[in-house]
Simulated assay, not measured.
Amino acid sequence: MEGIDYFDTFSPVVKLTSVRLILSLASAQNWHLKQLDVNNAFLHGDLYEEVYMKLPPGVTATSPNKACLLHKSLYGLKQVSRQWYDKLSSFLLSQDFTQTLGDHSLFTKHNGDNITIMMVYVDDIILTGNDINDINHITNMLNDRFKIKNLGNLSYFLGFEVARSSEGIHLSQRKYALDLLNETGMLNAAPVGTPMNFSTKVCYQGDPVDDPAAFRRLIGTLIYLTNTRPDITYAVHRLSQHVTSPTKLHHQAAFRILHYIKQTPGQGIYTLTLKAYSDSDWAGCPDSRKSTTRYIVYLGGSPISWKSKKRSIVSHNSSKAEYCALS
Score class of each variant (00 low, 15 high):
residue 134 D to I: 05
residue 89 S to G: 05
residue 125 I to K: 08
residue 128 T to D: 05
residue 130 N to R: 11
residue 134 D to F: 01
residue 116 T to E: 08
residue 105 S to Q: 08
residue 121 Y to A: 02
residue 126 I to E: 03
residue 117 I to Q: 09
residue 123 D to N: 12
residue 137 H to D: 11
residue 103 D to E: 11
residue 135 I to T: 06
residue 105 S to K: 07
residue 96 D to I: 04
residue 120 V to G: 04
residue 101 L to G: 03
residue 136 N to Q: 14
residue 110 H to P: 02
residue 107 F to D: 05
residue 113 D to K: 15
residue 133 N to Y: 05
residue 111 N to R: 14
residue 105 S to R: 07
residue 93 L to N: 09
residue 119 M to V: 00
residue 138 I to L: 05
residue 97 F to W: 01
residue 129 G to T: 11
residue 134 D to V: 04
residue 115 I to S: 08
residue 97 F to T: 06
residue 122 V to G: 09
residue 118 M to H: 00
residue 101 L to W: 06
residue 106 L to W: 05
residue 129 G to Q: 11
residue 127 L to W: 02
residue 101 L to N: 13
residue 122 V to R: 11
residue 124 D to R: 01
residue 117 I to D: 01
residue 109 K to I: 09
residue 105 S to Y: 05
residue 112 G to P: 07
residue 121 Y to D: 03
residue 117 I to G: 05
residue 105 S to H: 02
residue 133 N to H: 12
residue 135 I to K: 06
residue 89 S to K: 13
residue 108 T to S: 13
residue 128 T to Q: 09
residue 127 L to D: 06
residue 91 F to M: 10
residue 115 I to W: 02
residue 113 D to N: 15
residue 116 T to C: 13
residue 110 H to L: 15
residue 122 V to Y: 06
residue 131 D to R: 07
residue 101 L to F: 07
residue 130 N to W: 04
residue 88 L to Q: 05
residue 132 I to E: 15
residue 119 M to K: 01
residue 114 N to C: 10
residue 129 G to L: 10
residue 96 D to W: 01
residue 125 I to W: 00
residue 105 S to C: 10
residue 105 S to I: 03
residue 93 L to P: 05
residue 119 M to D: 04
residue 138 I to H: 04
residue 127 L to C: 06
residue 101 L to R: 15
residue 112 G to N: 10
residue 125 I to V: 12
residue 94 S to N: 15
residue 99 Q to Y: 00
residue 113 D to Y: 09
residue 109 K to G: 04
residue 113 D to S: 15
residue 137 H to I: 03
residue 134 D to K: 11
residue 121 Y to C: 03
residue 131 D to N: 15
